[in-house]
Amino acid sequence: MLLADGCALLREGVAALLAVHSGFDVIGSTGDGRDCVRMALRDAPDVMLFDCSLRGLNGIEAARRIAEQNTHTRLLCLSMHEEPHWVRATFDAGAHGYVLKRCAFTELLEAIETVLSSRYYVARDVAHTLVEGCRTRSRPEIVDDAGLSTREREITQLFAEGYSTQAIAERLHISAKTVATHREHIMAKLGIHGMAQLTRYALREGLTTLDSGS
């Protein structure tokens, strides 16, 4: 099992509980989204337990990249967010389960065993809010039908988290001009103007929680 969560204490606690109360071995642990992708593709764990908020690359985007290249690993999200848009974004990215951080350890074990048996797991409270969200949604949301590429989603996250054009260029090892061009394309595809709208889009689509930066 691979653990990916921004909180080291949580990772250590879950690993300790798994070691004592189950037969699952934790083969890796990280709080960084890019490391998460690298480790999952390299080691192909049976299960990856991940949070939406990871440094560098958010957990939803990390899950998307892993799901596209690794069909073996079952992806289980352990999140504090129970709003419908978070759940939808996570499953759209390729996740197989969604459980809340306030759950008991017995439920976490049930979720792990469920996704390992090639089924999907949705926490009861999450299932309720997901259905309610579908029934009460009164307006269409902006979705990635606009066709944002992997790089564009990554840049959207970084802009939403407050990185400047130059800082993004240095982080991704591309030119500032290329970043600016990506920003223009992103806004054109989404039909939005200004960073405030871009940030709202990133929050709504689960690209950032604004607490996952380094």
Rank of each mutant, 00 (worst) to 15 (best):
Ser164Thr: 09
Met48Ile: 10
Glu152Asn: 08
Ser138Gly: 08
His193Phe: 14
Glu152Gln: 13
Ala111Pro: 09
Ser53Asp: 07
Asp144Ser: 09
Glu154Pro: 05
Asp5Gly: 00
Leu76Gly: 03
Gly97Phe: 08
His85Pro: 10
Ser79Arg: 03
His81Gly: 05
Ile192Leu: 09
Glu68Phe: 01
His128Ser: 14
Phe159Asp: 04
Trp86Cys: 14
Leu109Met: 10
Leu49Met: 05
Val87Asn: 07
Leu3Gln: 02
His182Ala: 08
His193Trp: 13
His21Cys: 11
Asp211Thr: 11
Cys52Asn: 00
His185Met: 02
His128Ile: 15
Gln197His: 14
Ala16Arg: 07
Gln197Ser: 12
His85Glu: 15
Arg64Glu: 12
Arg137Ile: 07
His182Lys: 09
Glu110Trp: 05
Glu161Lys: 04
Cys7Ser: 11
His85Thr: 13
Ala169Thr: 06
Asp211Val: 12
Arg171Met: 12
Ala196Cys: 08
Leu57Asp: 01
Phe159Cys: 11
Ser79Val: 03
Ala146Trp: 04
Ala4Met: 07
Leu75Asp: 00
Leu100Trp: 06
Ile155Thr: 06
Gly23Ser: 10
Ala93Thr: 01
Val115Ala: 00
His96Trp: 12
Asp144Ile: 05
Ser164Asp: 00
Met80Val: 13
Arg102Pro: 12
Thr114Lys: 10
Ser22Val: 01
Met187His: 08
Val131Lys: 06
Leu57Glu: 02
Ala169Trp: 05
Ala15Gln: 10
Met80Pro: 01
Ile27Met: 09
